[in-house]
Write a protein that binds this DNA or RNA. Structure first.
Lengths: 224, 224
DNA sequence: TAGATTGTTAATCGATTAACAATC
DNA sequence: TAGATTGTTAATCGATTAACAATC
């Protein structure tokens, strides 16, 4: 089956993995059919949005019945590229690099981790999730010999600029980026997924603070 | 100074940490003033958006001149709650838990990590970023004795439900959640910041796949 | 057939961008 | 004052929600 392929809005893309997760869950519980309304309840959105989202890619439902869980899960899996196992390398074998190596190994069917690099003597040669950490100096060599699609940046910001340039130069055009280096600014023809853990913490902090301020105001209003 | 405090739209909240980062950078480079246009270029957005965002909280600029970097950074810092060091506990001393312990210790001025818990004998008693891993059984005891605002969930989904309930019961109302358990569904009066690493990877995978399909189509069109 | 639920168009809502008077 | 840039209102754009004919 060939899917419709207009440009997909970014909010839709972000919801796709969640649909997939909930459908997996339903499949595990042997649920056969699911309506847009039921899916919407799980996703905490509207039936309208569910139908709109799915219809970006095709017509998967049955009028009067809903969606077949098994089929829909499989279709969304295909759309997401699950099972493609794109070859990826991690650069930076510190805390984050090691954790993400594990993450990819254990919970992802999207990428295949083919190598981990580091430039520190103490890391090179050690084994992380079954892979021996390689010397960063071999980066270009390895990536040209092995076809690598994706670079996973687990290095500090200072190192990220150089590493990105080197990965770009051997043809890598997609990045999972944990550093604060802004890849897209310099390389607009790349696909970048940023994970800014610290920004996430700050956003939480902000909301806690706002909440405090709100309850203080309330207390003040009550005492008047 | 008391800030305006209407409800802040979520896209604005997500941009605040980025403003803060760029202003830090400018301050480090001894830049004194910055215009909304210059900030917009760094953020890769419009001058309009920058001014709209900042005016959610007050008037920080000087007509004809722009914004004083030092002042604006400090103000946004205050708005974000940087320096508040809200006391937080991590539950789950595995890969992710350990990494986040480090993250909070090294790069965040929002939270103060006061304890790490795990239920596995092999973890309890070991030292992570200077903290001895405690037995999860002590969770309630510790959190009632020490005032804890935030729970950081680094446990698998199966455990997340129970741990959330226990943290909620001792009064914790904000969560940094790495599990796939949907906290807000059951506890709508909480503040939750979800980090779904796997969803992020899937979104990247989707875009790689879309890109492939697009270039295949293009190749086909050209051969006609 | 009647009931249910889809696919899709239209209406609404919210966020971004543009415009411009105010002002340093 | 003239030039620059703000704060803020208005216009536009895009995403979400509602509505409903099509259909199993």
């Amino acid at each position: 089956m060939v899917y419709k392929r207009e440009k997909i809005a970014s909010p839709v893309i972000r919801r796709l993995p969640r649909y997939y997760r909930f459908l997996q869950e339903l499949e595990r519980r042997d649920v056969v059919n699911v309506s847009s309304g039921e899916l919407a309840e799980l996703m905490r959105t509207t039936a309208s949005q569910v139908r709109q989202d799915l219809n970006c890619f095709g017509e998967f439902g049955q009028h009067g019945i809903g969606y077949r869980v098994e089929t829909l899960r499989a279709e969304i899996g295909k759309i997401l590229g699950i099972g493609e196992y794109y070859p990826a390398v991690i650069v930076g074998a510190g805390n984050i690099g090691t954790t993400m190596a594990n993450q990819i190994l254990c919970t992802t069917e999207c990428f295949n981790l083919v190598a981990i690099f580091d430039n520190s003597e103490s890391k090179i040669g050690s084994v992380v999730t079954g892979l021996t950490v390689r010397n960063s100096a071999e980066l270009e060599d390895f990536c040209t010999k092995t076809k690598v699609t994706t670079g996973i940046l687990c290095v500090p910001r200072e190192a990220a600029e150089e590493i990105t340039a080197r990965l770009y130069n051997v043809g890598i055009r997609s990045f999972w980026n944990f550093s604060h280096y802004d890849i897209m600014a310099k390389y607009p023809d790349t696909l970048v997924e940023n994970v800014h853990l610290n920004d996430s913490l700050m956003a939480l902090c902000f909301r806690i603070k706002q909440n405090e301020l709100a309850s203080m105001e309330e207390a003040q209003d009550n005492s008047k």
